[in-house]
Nucleic acid binder design. Structure first.
Lengths: 335, 335
DNA sequence: ACCGTTTTGGTAAGCGCTTTCCTAAGGAGC
DNA sequence: GCTCCTTAGGAAAGCGCTTACCAAAACGGT
């Protein structure tokens, strides 16, 4: 028993036909093979348990059926939901997804992007949050540009900082809408728990909220862009003791952290303090009090990105704006 | 400007050396290249923006740096956490992960497994929950066996139904432990919300709980293995109106659904009814009431699977048992 | 000065496919 | 019966690499 898989050559030999015929019979081609031979080849392939070698096919055909997906953290429900959408769309197209998780580290992001490039996939989707760092953006471009130059396709799901097709969430506007609704509900003194300043998502959500807010400028507390960041930011906010009747955390995970911090401090949500989040993570839809948030079509965004990246390339990068929908729930009752 | 990436041949030409020398200089080899030539090649590669073609390398070397990961649903936090662990371990090894999400459909699983096989990755990790279906298991084996025969490696994270290295969660025992704790806390009439009977995880958790329970056999209500399943099962349980003081949902998502159903029906958790889950999904650690559950080292399990699958193959499939840890929280207060 | 070892660069044979060309055979048309 | 198409199989040239294998040069020892 050979420790190697059957090759097309083996199949051809077994069927008593030429390599070319075997190829034509098995792996779709416009050329027709006589029915009898066709059957013989199929049978031989079956007998040998032949599976085409996709790598060799890509080489020979000059086109691969792999697409790369680069996310900040696949364990984060935001990204895993996007990934699910993209993966299901990819599957429909007969494509395979190569997944990379950067951990939010720009250096890592570059390295993984390079790895993805090496694989010569058909396309790469960048779903990491963009960081406002010119040097890093330039380095990204240095990877992305030649890949595109060589016929690869790239799309992003993020703030539109790279000159590629981008699914861009209108964070600012959604946050503005949220601020307006919060105001309408009768709140007067909001605080914003935000992520690091370099993170564009975080910044835009914060700024959007501030824009939409008509009263005094909200207090802003920054920390990490995750659950613990929300927890810590909330603690600091409480400790610094300003009067606040409502807290907007720039994502649902931070909001959960914030609510946990409230619990620790004996603050009851929403009686003593209202809380709102952003993203509408599905896993969190059943928490109590139900979280006011901004719903994003995450699955759809994954699909859209794949669709864009497979479309015929156009000279000018497309932008596809996605609007978030404010969902008011119990965590911000009318005052 | 050519619409194709620079190849090693281009680099060799540019540097005025042979293809072999360029290869040796750029892509690690035991053969040494004189410093001067080495520098010249590096420079040329740089000038041309050369990126090795990983597919071609795999072909030539006869070994790839891709590993496949097959999960039920990457949007499910259970799997996305495992994926995160596996991805980070893969990254450390310089491997790339190909991700497939089956949606729990066995047919899909087979198809995606075939796709993964075609890619001739170094290894494949099956993280889907095993279904108790001989025919399907046989079909899986028909894909797995030849892949292994041909030098591929396969591991699973699931119930040990396939003859491959497996990370197996001791679901039965953990559920038993949980049942014991629930009993100790003073509960007398538990119900179990379980998934479909074919799903082994679900069955083992249910059976384990029953084993550990010393009183009358718990009522069992089956539905889907997800949030909505928990919701529906809970509704049915309530409507059928038996006396129950505690509900064990076989995973956290079902538990969340169950709690939501309780809320709908005006049942207060944990005052009127206690609820426990399984998995300890990190996103849900801050819900109120805090959920009693069984903690699983999901990230670690992903890493373990990769480690196993990269280890030297041994004749006998290894089993690496993982124990869950019962975490009692507010949702099951002592009575 | 000579022979046996190291270096170290190059040549060419693959890896498993697809696809272009070529050629032989069969059919149509007159 | 002959030419002109059409059809279908096969030979072989790649795709972009790695890696035997070979050969030339440099080196060491005597």
């Amino acid at each position: 028993m050979p420790a190697r898989a059957a090759t097309l050559t083996d199949v051809a030999k077994e069927a008593g036909v030429s390599l070319a015929t075997a190829s034509r019979a098995l792996n779709g081609s416009d050329r027709v093979v006589r029915a009898e031979l066709h059957a013989r080849v199929l049978e031989a392939a079956n007998r040998l348990g032949y599976t085409p070698n996709a790598q060799a096919q890509s080489m020979a055909r000059g086109s691969s059926d792999l697409v790369g997906l680069l996310v900040n953290d696949i364990a984060d429900p935001y990204f895993s939901t996007i990934a699910a959408g993209l993966a299901s769309a990819a599957e429909e197209q007969g494509l395979l997804v190569m997944l990379c998780s950067t951990g939010g580290d720009p250096g890592q992001e570059l390295e993984l992007l390079a790895a993805l490039r090496r694989q010569r996939g058909r396309a790469i989707v960048l779903a990491g949050s963009r960081i406002d760092d010119r040097a890093h953006l330039r380095k990204l471009s240095e990877q992305v540009d030649p890949f595109i130059e060589a016929g690869g396709r790239v799309a992003a799901i993020s703030e539109p900082k790279l000159p590629v097709d981008t699914v861009v969430v209108d964070n600012k506007r959604a946050a503005r809408d949220l601020a307006v609704r919060i105001g309408e509900l009768g709140y007067r003194r909001p605080a914003v728990l935000t992520g690091p300043d370099e993170l564009l998502v975080s910044r835009n959500r914060r700024d959007g909220f501030a824009e939409g807010w008509t009263g005094d400028a909200p207090i802003v507390v920054a920390d990490e862009f995750n659950r613990d960041g929300g927890f810590n930011a909330m603690q600091r906010l409480v400790d610094s003791g300003p009067e606040v009747d409502c807290v907007f955390a720039v994502n649902d995970l931070m909001a959960m952290g914030a609510m946990a911090a409230c619990r620790d401090r004996g603050i009851e949500v929403p009686r003593d303090l209202a809380v709102a989040g952003f993203d509408d993570i599905s896993t969190l839809r059943d928490v109590t009090p139900a979280l006011t948030t901004v719903r994003l079509p995450l699955t759809e965004m994954g699909r859209m990105a794949l669709e864009m990246v497979l479309n015929d390339p156009v000279a000018k990068p497309r932008r596809r704006k996605v609007q978030g929908e404010v969902i008011v729930r119990e965590s911000t009752p009318a005052r």
